[in-house]
Simulated scan of single mutants.
Amino acid sequence: MASGAEEFVEADNAEAIITRIEHKSRKIESLLKQSKPVEALKTALEGSPPKTRDERCKSANWIVVHRALMAIKDVDALFSSLDPEYYDILMK
């Protein structure tokens, strides 16, 4: 019965993570409309889901990060100016 409880907790956590990602997505869209793509990417990378096995969380977070990345015209300049912590998150 313990394994069923663990799955339930994981599902609850997944729903909470998805909700946070949706909120983050709205903030990113707002930053992109203000022509602030670098801030949008940093926002996308901040608070990336903790190690979760839930594929929905991983996929939803990737969509948000990808959306911010695609708005950046000069990716080389971005990578050279990105703080190491953000670069590490992006590479993971």
Rank of each mutant, 00 (worst) to 15 (best):
I63S: 10
Y87R: 00
E10A: 10
S25Q: 13
L32R: 06
S30N: 03
K51T: 14
L78P: 07
V9H: 06
E6G: 01
R20H: 02
R26G: 07
L69A: 12
I28V: 15
A16F: 02
E22G: 09
P50F: 01
A5Q: 12
L90N: 01
T43P: 01
K33W: 03
I17F: 02
A60H: 11
N13D: 09
M70K: 10
K24T: 14
E29S: 14
I63E: 07
L45P: 03
D83Q: 09
E7R: 15
L32G: 11
I21V: 15
V65H: 00
E85R: 12
C57F: 07
V38N: 08
K24A: 15
V75T: 14
K36P: 05
P49R: 10
R26F: 05
K73E: 13
Y87W: 12
Y86D: 00
R53K: 14
L69H: 05
R56F: 06
T52K: 09
L41R: 02
E39L: 13
A60Y: 09
A77T: 15
V75M: 12
V75Q: 11
E46R: 09
S3A: 10
L31I: 03
A14W: 00
M70V: 08
K33P: 00
I21D: 04
T43F: 00
M91F: 11
E29D: 15
E85G: 01
S59Q: 14
M70P: 02
Y86S: 06
S30M: 04
M91L: 12
E55L: 14
A77V: 10
K24N: 12
M91E: 10
I72Y: 01
